[in-house]
């Protein structure tokens, strides 16, 4: 049910931002307190700092899967 969330490394993040030709602040946000981020934290056994970018791969009605990115913010 919960789509795949994965933390991007700094290199990957830069690549994604470069590809989209945007800066971090233009990404959609996800709160640290979001259940998906909490679970990811436990699964990775590490802290997910603010400003990190998460890739979400979810099923889509129109294309088979859709890749989206979220910027982790405090809250």
């Amino acid at each position: 049910m919960v789509p795949v969330h994965e933390l991007l490394s700094d290199d990957e993040t830069d690549k994604v931002l470069k590809r989209l030709k945007i800066t971090r602040d233009q990404l959609p946000k996800i709160k640290e307190s979001d259940a998906a981020i909490k679970t990811l934290k436990i699964a990775m056994n590490m802290d997910i700092p603010e400003k990190s970018v998460v890739r979400i791969i979810r099923d889509s009605q129109t294309s088979e899967t859709a890749e989206v990115y979220r910027l982790v913010i405090r809250g």
């Binding site: 233009q26 959609p28 129109t62 989206v68």
Partner: peptide
């Protein structure tokens, strides 16, 4: 798909 602040709302229009 972006808003007037140029923030991304949808990465790929309608996902496809």
């Amino acid at each position: 798909v972006r808003n007037t602040a140029d923030s991304i709302i949808q990465f790929h229009y309608g996902e496809d």
